[in-house]
Amino acid sequence: MIEVKGLRKEYKEIVAVDDISFTAERGSIFGLLGPNGAGKSTTIGCICGLLEPTAGQVRVMGHDILRESIQAKSQLGVVPQELAIYEDLSATENLNYWGAACGLRRKELKERVPEVLELTGLQDRAKEPVKHFSGGMKRRLNFACGVVHHPAVLLLDEPTVGVDPQSRVRLLDLVREQAVAGTCVLYTTHYMEEAEKLCDSLAIIDHGKIIAAGTLPELRALLGERDLLRMSGVFDKTAVPAALAELETLEIIQLEDNALTLALGSAPQMLNRVLQALSSSGAQVRETTMNQPNLESLFIKLTGKELRE
């Protein structure tokens, strides 16, 4: 398991990570969800011992990453955001090297490398130099190098960035398999739907701080059992709140000059009244969509902004 307590990382005057605490359990996937620059990669860097925290503590399977780094790192498997493989070597040679670097002996490598190649669907191209691989194949190999030694804890830093849809599905399946096999997985992403599908528990991070944490149902509950009504058009930022104030169980999630997002109970029944109120405020509604509440709406509610790509 991973225990993070009061983690803080400063770069001169910039606070990249500010007092972050969470626990990720074995056999589960813990997601760190946030926009680019939120502090996800810095958090991963501190957990894997690549960066020294300014304050706080990180324990991996009970070992402090700074004081017992060898024991802690022995439990870790890391899949970095950027590809970290040798493009001039073959997939087999890459796996052999990273496996050996993580402590596998020759006999273990002989068994495990073909296994991982098959797992990632690279067995047919195993002897070929990686530079001839497609982007998705390289991503799969990048993942394979992180799991070749059966780590107890797996850190995945946005492993699906720039990956085609097919490879993304394959990678997500692989991550799920790791968790099922008992690995503690920490998964960072800025794709809401990925986090929703994959993670057992989540922490939403923005500007280096955790703004919400819990299981998916717990996070949804923060929005209440309400639907999400999104509208585009022209809206007056002063007149619209006044016009909607009379409607019960309605909450304005987002209000811009050209966009409005509302959370409300029984949205289909309420829709007529909402449109009338908006019309009386002088708003012009061009398009309306209705959704179930999701992480994105929670993020918007908590931060007042959309999740940036």
């Binding site: 894997c48 011992g49 690549l50 060898i70 790192k73 890391v78 970095p80 993580c102 402590g103």
Partner: peptide, 13 residues
């Protein structure tokens, strides 16, 4: 620049 040095630094060595 290829990230392999950083990856090596995350191992126990």
């Amino acid at each position: 620049s290829g990230g392999t040095l950083a990856r090596a630094m995350t191992t126990r060595h």
